[in-house]
Computed example of a mutant assay.
Amino acid sequence: MSTPVSELCCSPVLAGPLPPEAAADLAAALKVVADPARLRLLGLIRSQPEGEACTCDLTEPLGLSQPTVSHHLKVLYEAGFLNRERRGRQTYYRIAPNSLSVLCQALDPSAI
């Protein structure tokens, strides 16, 4: 993805044609979240009491191996959907502020 999701700024999709670069950036962001495991990860992280989760807390609920979960977390992080913080040997993830609202607003500005 060429632009992190937090920096996307585009007209709502239904408001008219998107410029090619904005369409490509939005399509890349949508591809990132179009994976069922990644959608589940976002929900699992958001639903934690502190709004953050360690990789070790996410493997069992997803039923996926640790390397697979780590891969999906890396993709979400690199796309700007997650923030991460290393604490000792563990990495904790949080939903990046406004990262999901960018997608909502692009698809339906009345939803925000």
Rank of each mutant, 00 (worst) to 15 (best):
L62M: 05
A34G: 15
T59E: 11
A37D: 09
S47M: 11
L39D: 06
I112R: 12
N98E: 14
A23I: 05
A111N: 08
S47L: 13
P4D: 09
T3L: 12
L42V: 09
A79I: 05
A53L: 04
A28I: 01
H71F: 13
L44G: 03
L26C: 06
E60T: 09
L82Y: 03
V32H: 01
A27L: 08
R40H: 06
L64Q: 07
H72E: 07
K31M: 11
C10M: 08
R84K: 15
L62P: 02
R40Y: 01
E85V: 11
R40I: 00
A106G: 05
P36H: 06
P17C: 06
P17Q: 12
T91F: 04
E52C: 11
V69P: 01
A34V: 04
A23T: 06
G63M: 06
T55Y: 00
V33Q: 01
S110G: 04
D57Y: 04
I95V: 15
K74P: 00
P17Y: 06
E60Q: 09
R40W: 00
R46W: 09
R46L: 12
A28D: 10
E85H: 09
L62C: 03
Y77E: 13
C54W: 00
V33I: 15
E85L: 10
L82C: 08
A22H: 12
G16H: 13
P67C: 10
C10Y: 01
S65N: 09
Y92C: 04
P109R: 11
C10R: 01
P19C: 08
A22L: 05
H72Q: 11
V102E: 00
P19T: 09
E50L: 14
Y93G: 05
C9I: 08
I45K: 03
T91P: 05
C104G: 11
G88F: 11
L64A: 07
I45G: 02
L82K: 03
P4S: 10
